[in-house]
Simulated scan of single mutants.
Amino acid sequence: MRTQVAIIGGGPAGLLLSHLLHRRGIDSVVLESRDRDYVEHRQRAGMLEQGTTDVLRESGAGERLDREGLVHRGLELRFGGAGHRVPLTGLTGRTVTVYAQTEIVKDLVARRLADGGDVRFEAEAVALDASAPSVTFRSGGRIRRLECDYIAACDGFHGVGRAAVPGLRTFEREYPFAWLGILADVPPSTDELIYAHHDRGFALHSLRSPRVSRLYLQVPPEEDLAAWPDARIWDELAARFATDDGWELREGPITDRSITPMRSFVAEPLRHDRLFLAGDAGHIVPPTGAKGLNLAVSDVTVLARAFAERYASGSHTLLDGYSDACLRRVWRAEHFSYWMTTLLHTDPAATGFEHRLQRSHLEYVASSEAAQTSLAENYTGLPLA
């Protein structure tokens, strides 16, 4: 087998890259280790920056996003029994949109298959060669080899792509807490996201649709999911979201629950020879800043432009600059995600002095237009490189 760009990973990064390359007349093959049903139904949150929605629309993959996405022009910081709205659009002129990664994947799979794209499910990449580029993969009980000009590893944190890059420098931070996330069949109790700081821990009220709510609780990283029956989850959420004016949280049947650890991670560089890392293969952010999916979209947008230049003119300028261009945005997002995480979560090891500093910082952000503008600029997304 042969193609121009071999893409490992059929998540939003790999599928979007394949779609963007197709629109530029560049052939690709997507190798995804899981089956299609799993890929299209694994639950992932989705808070899209303005730039991400622009990329999807301009590529022709935003029709259902425009129809079903929930546009947000602000968010609420809640602490001390009161809410404080940050007017994202008023401060930046930009919006964010809630649209689950699950739905983006469904849209992109449908688009690639309708365009005749080669997306191979249950095709597990087991080895790759970045110099004489090829990917060895297992499919249908057979071992096959895909030769190519370039390899894009969009295969996540545990994939084979990053392991194939020699001499990587890695930077990592583990956080002393995790998120217990739930999906519930109940209309959201809010029109905009609520980020709540409480002495008992952080809580987030998000929205999946007009009929489905997505909520999160800070828990210890070693927490047992079995220790959280429905009643305990709802009681704890209500306590952390409580306000002095009697705001009420709607409750409903919980249909999905999971515990997600919190980590910051960056690998440098994002390129080795003809292998390029994109998305979670190269970097992880804690979810507080809503940057994971958006960084992946940024990576593959930059990479698609670089491949287009290479095939159109023979120039390697953008390919050679890919890692530096992406890492500048990655580190900005890493800092913002770290800032949001430490601003809002309760650190079990923090001293009383540190707790008072955190509360002072929250009060400053809630009262300062300059601080809110910085938050809004980063939350809605800086311009793509």
Rank of each mutant, 00 (worst) to 15 (best):
G51S: 14
D54V: 08
E40Q: 14
I26V: 11
L31P: 04
R42Y: 12
L21P: 06
E76P: 06
M47N: 11
H19Q: 12
L20T: 04
R67Q: 13
R73D: 15
A45Y: 02
G14F: 03
A13F: 02
S33F: 07
H41Y: 10
R78F: 04
G25S: 07
S18W: 06
R73Q: 15
R34V: 05
V71H: 06
E68T: 00
L20C: 03
E68N: 08
A61T: 09
A13L: 06
L56C: 04
V29R: 00
Q43L: 14
R42M: 10
M47R: 08
G46C: 00
E68K: 01
I26T: 06
L17E: 08
D35C: 07
L15H: 07
R64W: 09
E63H: 10
R67K: 09
R36G: 07
E63V: 10
Q43K: 09
D66I: 01
A61V: 04
V39D: 05
L75V: 05
R36I: 12
G25F: 05
E32D: 09
L21E: 10
L56G: 03
H41Q: 13
G60L: 02
A13T: 13
E32V: 01
S28M: 08
L17M: 04
A61S: 11
G25A: 09
Q43R: 11
V55I: 14
H41D: 15
L77P: 04
G60C: 04
L77V: 01
E32W: 02
D54R: 12
G62E: 05
V30I: 07
S18F: 03
E76N: 14
H19E: 15
L56F: 08
E40V: 06
L20W: 07
V71E: 15
Y38L: 08
D37K: 11
R34M: 13
H41N: 15
R73T: 14
E32C: 02
D54G: 05
L15I: 06
T52H: 11
G25I: 07
Q50S: 15
V30F: 00
R78G: 06
D27M: 11
G14H: 05
H19F: 13
G60H: 04
D37V: 14
H41G: 11
R36E: 15
D35R: 06
Q50T: 12
E58R: 15
G62C: 06
S33D: 12
L16Q: 07
E63M: 07
L21I: 05
R78L: 12
G69R: 00
R57P: 14
R73L: 06
L77G: 04
A45K: 00
E40M: 11
G46F: 00
H22I: 10
S33V: 10
S59R: 02
R57K: 14
S28N: 09
R78K: 10
R78E: 09
L21K: 00
R36S: 14
L48D: 06
L20P: 05
R34T: 14
S33C: 12
V29M: 03
V71F: 03
Y38V: 13
T52L: 03
D66K: 01
D37A: 13
Q50K: 12
L17T: 02
S33H: 11
L21C: 06
M47S: 14
I26N: 03
R23F: 02
Q50H: 15
R57E: 15
H22M: 12
S59D: 13
V29S: 01
V30R: 02
M47P: 09
H72G: 07
R23H: 13
R67N: 07
